[in-house]
Simulated assay, not measured.
Amino acid sequence: MTTPEWLKPGIYGALLGGAFVGIVGFSWGGWVTGSNAEKMASEMAEDRVIAALVPFCLDMSRTDEERIAKLATIREASSFRQRDAVMETGWTTMPGAEGPNRDLAQACIEGLDLDAS
């Protein structure tokens, strides 16, 4: 099929316009693919769950009979090992979970008063 000469500029314009709109939309327009949106939603949900569980961790630390000794162990640990020390206390293991949660341990460190004597 032959395309009339008068129609070719319109076809080229539509193709270039579509490409331009796509590039601008994904670059500056805030458009995302479905998989990227799902990934962002999953990360946001996980962050919110961790934030909701921090009071649980802090409450576990307050009611622990060995709190003073465990806090001393956490304080003595280097800054990059404190998360592991908090995980070893058992304060970041949720009921029904197989093990401690690393992200919760990191968030719990911020809530613990490690600077107090």
Rank of each mutant, 00 (worst) to 15 (best):
E65G: 09
T33E: 13
I11A: 02
A45P: 08
G17C: 12
L71E: 04
G10H: 12
R48T: 04
F80N: 11
S61C: 03
S78V: 03
G34N: 14
G10F: 06
I50M: 01
D113H: 01
S27G: 15
D64P: 11
F26E: 12
G34M: 14
S42H: 15
L112I: 06
E88V: 15
G25C: 05
S79A: 15
M87L: 07
D115K: 08
W28T: 06
K39M: 08
I23N: 06
S35P: 11
G90K: 01
K8D: 11
I23H: 10
P9V: 09
A107Y: 00
R75M: 11
W91H: 02
A116C: 15
A105G: 00
T2Y: 04
E88R: 09
K39Y: 06
F56G: 08
A19G: 12
G99M: 13
T89Y: 02
I74S: 00
E38Y: 00
R48H: 05
N36Y: 07
G29L: 15
T3D: 02
M60P: 08
A52S: 04
R75C: 02
I109A: 00
G34Q: 11
I23L: 12
A85F: 05
L114G: 03
T3H: 11
Y12W: 10
M94S: 07
Q82Y: 02
D59G: 10
M87C: 05
Q82P: 00
G13T: 13
L53W: 09
W31R: 13
M60R: 14
E46P: 11
E66D: 12
G30C: 14
S79D: 15
M87D: 02
G30S: 12
L16C: 08
S78T: 11
W6G: 00
L15M: 06
S35D: 15
A52R: 07
R81G: 13
M60G: 10
Q106V: 08
S61H: 03
W6S: 01
A19S: 07
E38G: 03
L7T: 01
A107G: 00
S27W: 14
P9T: 08
W28K: 12
G22L: 15
Q82W: 03
C57F: 09
C57N: 08
K39E: 14
T63R: 03
G22M: 12
A107V: 00
A105F: 01
L104W: 05
G30M: 12
G29E: 15
T93M: 07
E110V: 14
P95F: 06
Q82A: 05
W91D: 00
G10R: 06
G111D: 09
M1N: 13
W91K: 00
A41Q: 12
L15T: 08
S27I: 15
A51K: 01
W6I: 07
F26M: 13
R102A: 14
T89N: 09
F20S: 02
M44A: 15
G96C: 04
V49E: 10
E46N: 13
I11Y: 03
A19P: 01
I109L: 14
A37Q: 14
T3S: 04
A51I: 02
F80G: 07
A105N: 00
V86Y: 06
L104H: 08
G13N: 12
Q82N: 06
A45W: 09
T63N: 05
V32T: 14
M40K: 11
V49R: 07
M87S: 02
F20A: 08
M1P: 04
